[in-house]
C-alpha cells in the first residue's frame, strides 16, 4: 500500500523560496506565472496490514502531526492507494 503526503506552508505564511522561483520563471519569460508556493511531497510505502481505512488514515494523520509537518506554519494532506 502506498501513501502520498503533501506538506505545504499555510496560506498566511510568506514563502520567500516560492517568490524567488516565481521571479526566476518570470525572467525565463513565463510571464503568466502569478504565484509559486513550495511544499514537500513524501511517498510512503506501507506493509499490507489488516488496518481499516479509518485506522490507516489516523496513522497518517499522526505521522503528519508528530513529525512530517510543523503545524505552526504548515498544512498537510494525504492520499492512500
Amino acid at each position: 500500500m502506498k501513501a502520498t503526503v503533501i506538506v505545504e506552508l499555510k496560506p498566511s505564511v510568506l514563502d520567500p523560496q516560492g517568490k524567488a522561483i516565481q521571479h526566476a520563471l518570470h525572467s525565463l519569460a513565463f510571464t503568466s506565472v502569478e504565484d509559486v508556493r513550495v511544499g514537500k511531497l513524501f511517498r510512503i510505502s506501507l506493509t499490507d496490514s489488516n488496518l481499516s481505512r479509518e485506522d490507516l488514515e489516523e496513522q497518517l494523520r499522526q505521522m503528519c502531526q508528530r513529525l512530517l509537518a510543523n503545524t505552526v506554519v504548515e498544512n498537510f494532506s494525504y492520499t492512500i492507494e
Partner: peptide, 16 residues
C-alpha cells in the same frame, strides 16, 4: 520551538 517549549517557528531567512 519544534519540541513545543517555545511558541512559533523559525523559517528560511526572507532573502534565502
Amino acid at each position: 520551538t519544534e519540541v513545543g517549549l517555545l511558541a512559533g517557528a523559525l523559517m528560511r531567512n526572507e532573502h534565502l
